Each structure stands twice: as C-alpha cells, then as structure tokens.
Amino acid sequence: MIIDGTNKPAGAADKDPLLVGLGQRVKLLRARRGIPRRVLAEAADVSERHLANLESGIGNVSVLVLQQVAQALGCSLAELLGDETTSSPEWLMIRKLLQGRSQTDLHTAHRALADIFLEGSNAGQRNERIAFIGLRGAGKSTLGQMVAARLNRPFIELRAEITRLAGCGPMEIQALYGSNAYRRYERQALEETLQNHKSCVIATAGGIVSEPGTLDILLRHCLTIWLQAEPEDHMDRVIAQGDAQALHKSGRREAIDDLRLILESRAAFYAKADFSYNTSGKTLEEAFAGLMSAIAAHQPMIVA
C-alpha cells in the first residue's frame, strides 16, 4: 500500500487533482518524446517505481525530483507544470492576446510569427519536397519510396541521415547521449537534407514532432502528409519488420495501449500536416493508389 505525505492510503478516490494533472503532463511529455519510463527514470536519477507513482498521480513528490525529471525530458520546470508563459512580461502579454482565441486564429498567429522569425519558402518550393510523418508502421518508408519512384525524385530516409551524421544508430545515440542529443541530430539531418535536395521525398521518424522547432522547419519547406493507421496495424507492421521488441513485456494489449498514448500525445502535432491519409484496411497497391490520388487532389501540379 502506498502512503502519501499525510499518512493516508493513496487510492483512486482520494487522488489530488493537482498530482493527477501533473502525472498526466509527465506521461504525455514522455510519450511525445518517445522515452520509455525506465530510460527516463535512469536519466532523472529516480527509481522507476517513484516515476510510475508520479505519473499515476499518487504519493507526493519533491520539487527537486520534478526538476530532475524536467531536465531529463529536456524541458523547463514551468513547462512540466503546464505553464511556460510566465517568464517575462512579453510572454504574459502574448498569452493574454491569444487567450480564448479559436484554433483558426491561433493558426493565423502562428504563421504570422513564423513569417517574422523563420526563413520561409514559397508554395512552389514546398511542393518540390514531400515529407511523411506519423507513427512507425504507418507506411512512411514503403510508400515514400514508391511515391519517390513514381515522381522520379530522390528518397531520403531521415533515420539513415541521422545515423550517418552521428556515426551510430538512433537507439545507440539515445543510449549514449540521451534523447535531446538525438533531437539535435534529427534537426541537423533535416536541415542538411533541405539544403542538399531541392526536390525529394522524405520519410521522417515518428517522434520528429516532439521538437516544435524541427516540425516548423518541416512544415515550412515540405508538403507534409500524416500517414495514419489503426494501432493494431502499426503493431503488426512493426513486428512484421522483425522488431520483436515492439511487444510490451506485459503483452500485446499493453503495447497497443502504449501506442494509443503516444498517438494521443502527438496527434495535435501530426495534425499540422497539409493533409492526412489512412493506410489501414488497404493492400499496399490500394494504399499507394489512394495516396497518389490524395496528393493529386491536394496539389495537382505535383503529379501532372
């Protein structure tokens, strides 16, 4: 039985709303970055059980532990607590200006700020590059290669570019240097790809949306397509690729539940793509034909 700071049993009925919200925030940030709980616990120098309690909203947690978790996640303590917009008068004024606005208004504001602070490219240049985003197993690599061949454009697997830059694979990068280092290599790989290829098709890793700055670059320089699939299809395809580690040690159901959580944490970012296409329930040939039709409907000049 877990006892909290008040010496009362911590059950579902008496969970503190603040602790529950904090736990959900930690879990979503961890899922968005694709970091297993065990890895985050090691990076934060806390026990995996203590981290599990934090994510579950039970027990109490010190500010120092929260700071360690925030550092391991590569975010500020304010962001971990859910509010990073209190650091300056400018942040507060911007937040007040945007508070209560519709999603359409927020999108307009974001594009205006991006035009001010980010190097952009025109619509014609964007259409010369197609980038696929989405969870692993959606078909980014397989369909990406087929689209590249049809359009006679180079196909770029961003994970391969990351490996080339780092001298080791993504798993080794994260194990040796941490997820933040991996995200830096990922951004560098994307920037070099955009610099070296005026026309190409790019397959990104599922977690590229974890770093908003990298996602901004992708959206501004590429026609971006979110490839979707049902969680069960994601799992079956990854296993078919020979990755038995995709199965959760507690079973298939837990692994699919993890996928759903990752998708939940990233869905709003994936939705920033120009459009989405669902590959579930289709043969490879049907998925490819449907995808090409969707690209043609969105940008006829690409397949003309």
Rank of each mutant, 00 (worst) to 15 (best):
D16V: 14
D4A: 03
N278L: 02
P9D: 06
P231R: 10
D233A: 10
R266D: 12
T204P: 06
A109F: 11
E254A: 15
A287D: 01
K282W: 03
R111F: 00
L223A: 00
P170V: 12
P231D: 11
N127H: 14
L64S: 14
Q125Y: 03
F117S: 07
L40P: 08
G207K: 03
Q241S: 15
A114Q: 13
V20T: 15
V26H: 03
E264H: 13
N196I: 04
G11A: 05
L263H: 12
V65F: 06
H107A: 15
R159N: 13
K282F: 00
L19G: 06
Q125A: 10
G120F: 09
P17V: 05
R129F: 05
A149W: 00
L81C: 15
E48M: 14
Q68G: 01
I217R: 12
V147G: 04
A175N: 15
T163L: 06
L135S: 08
P89K: 09
L291C: 02
G137Y: 06
N122A: 12
A78Q: 14
L19F: 12
F117Y: 14
L73W: 11
R164D: 11
S76F: 02
L80W: 06
R101G: 09
C200I: 04
S179G: 02
T142L: 13
L219N: 03
D236L: 10
L40Q: 04
S102G: 06
L143A: 01
M292C: 13
V46C: 07
S87M: 05
F269N: 13
E186M: 05
L219H: 00
A189Y: 09
D236P: 01
D105K: 12
D274I: 00
A78R: 07
A44Q: 12
T224R: 06
R260P: 03
L66K: 08
Q241L: 13
A31S: 11
L261V: 08
A31D: 11
V61M: 09
H110M: 10
V209G: 01
G206Y: 04
D105M: 13
K27F: 00
C200G: 05
A149P: 01
R184M: 12
L66C: 07
R159P: 00
